[in-house]
Simulated scan of single mutants.
Amino acid sequence: MPRFGLGNMLIVWARAVLFAELNGLPVLSPNWSEVRIGPWLRNERTKRYYANLFITQDYYSRFRYYLQKSIRKENKFYNPLFSQVEELYLDEGKKYTRIIFNRIPSWNDYFQDLKEHQPFIKNCLIGMVRPSLLAHIYQQPSPCIGIHIRMGDYREPKPGDDFAIQRTTRTPILWFARVLQSVRDIAGYNLTATIFSDGYPHELQDILKLPNVSLSNNKCALNDLITLSRSQLIIASSHSSFSAWASYLGQCPTIWYLERFNLYEPIFLEPLQDKIFEGGYDPEVSQPPEILKQNIKQIVESTN
């Protein structure tokens, strides 16, 4: 697993699980238990520890693997391309083969190879969540508008920053507020909004002070991720794999910061793009796209 947050760990996991499914192979039990010092040093709200979130009985035993590794030779392949699955030939002279996924895809197309397999990946993810946590998640109401505001190790933008390129720069809080107000203007009233963030309330006051806006009190990143994915509309943090995963899992209207979306491939497949808005939008720059207005009106109809 990469030494990053939950979103980037999940992307490596998902590619391994899909590759195994396509080739009829077992998957070694993922290691979610690594402790990260950075979140403690930065005093982040969430500490990025995920070992207690998942069950692993459906995976190949890590103990059994290490036992075999000690007595058998091993043939290794790293990050094979999905387009070359049939060209992967195993060395018959070895006792067994291990195919290792540890690379994060380019942000230009983060869900490459996974887009058409969204139902399978979602079912696998939900299926390995601890039942007690999953029950707690589904006891909570689905958010109307889910807003993900990434703070943590991201920094405030500085004058002259090229926000579209600098991935560790925070999406401006005031942009979230502008977009929320625009969505509400289209709806004709103040739709409820839930903020999901690793930031503290005092850092989010510019949007928390708006009416019908609340902050998720969950301290579990996976809880927030799945709950955010159940939103009827997502306002996303740029360059955030967490936002991207919520959009991918939820397949719901998703609004990105304008410069971000101009650089990357869509998360949704083309047939879905004709029905559900996924794109960059800033009320200060342009009028809301027609498909977004239609999606918001559908939300209004479903909540009345």
Rank of each mutant, 00 (worst) to 15 (best):
Leu272Gly: 06
Ala20Val: 03
Ile173Trp: 00
Lys297Trp: 06
Asn52Ala: 14
Asn23Ile: 08
Ser247Leu: 08
Arg230Lys: 10
Ala135Asn: 12
Ile11Asn: 07
Gly160Val: 02
Ser238Glu: 09
Glu86Thr: 08
Tyr89Gln: 14
Tyr89Ala: 14
Val300Gln: 00
Glu86Ser: 15
Pro288Lys: 00
Ser83Lys: 10
Ile207Met: 02
Asn8Thr: 06
Tyr60His: 07
Lys95Gly: 13
Ala135His: 12
Cys124Trp: 14
Ala16Asn: 05
Ala244Val: 01
Pro172Trp: 01
Glu156Gln: 12
Lys76Val: 15
Pro131Tyr: 08
Leu292Trp: 01
Asp198Glu: 09
Ile147Leu: 04
Ser132Ile: 12
Gly7Met: 05
Tyr281Pro: 01
Leu28Gln: 04
Phe242Arg: 05
Glu86His: 10
Pro266Trp: 03
Val27Arg: 00
Pro253Ile: 00
Ile226Gly: 01
Trp13Ile: 06
Leu228Tyr: 02
Gly152Met: 04
Phe101His: 00
Ala20Gly: 06
Ala135Arg: 13
Tyr65His: 13
Phe82Met: 12
Pro266Ser: 13
Ser231Arg: 01
Gly24Thr: 01
Ala177Gln: 07
His148Ser: 04
Tyr138Ser: 06
Ala187Tyr: 04
Ser33Ile: 09
Met128Thr: 10
His148Thr: 05
Trp32Thr: 07
Glu259Arg: 09
Arg62Met: 10
Glu156Leu: 14
Val27His: 02
Phe277Gly: 02
Ala135Pro: 01
Ile267Cys: 11
Ser142Pro: 06
Tyr66Cys: 07
Leu228Asp: 06
Ala187Ser: 05
Pro266Asp: 11
Ile226Phe: 11
Thr192Val: 08
Arg230Gly: 05
Val129Met: 08
Tyr49Phe: 14
Thr169Met: 15
Ala14Tyr: 02
Lys115Asp: 05
Phe19Tyr: 14
His148Phe: 02
Leu134His: 01
Arg170Leu: 04
Tyr89Ile: 05
Ile37Met: 14
Leu81Cys: 09
Leu222Gly: 04
Tyr49Glu: 14
Pro172Ile: 03
Thr303Ser: 09
Ile296Gly: 00
Asn223Cys: 12
Ser70Lys: 09
Gln294Leu: 10
Arg45Pro: 11
Gln298Leu: 10
Glu284Ala: 13
Arg36His: 13
Ala236Asp: 07
Leu67Ser: 14
Pro141Gln: 10
Pro211Ser: 06
Val85Lys: 11
Arg167Phe: 08
Tyr257Met: 14
Leu125Lys: 06
Trp256Ser: 08
Arg155Tyr: 10
Tyr110Trp: 06
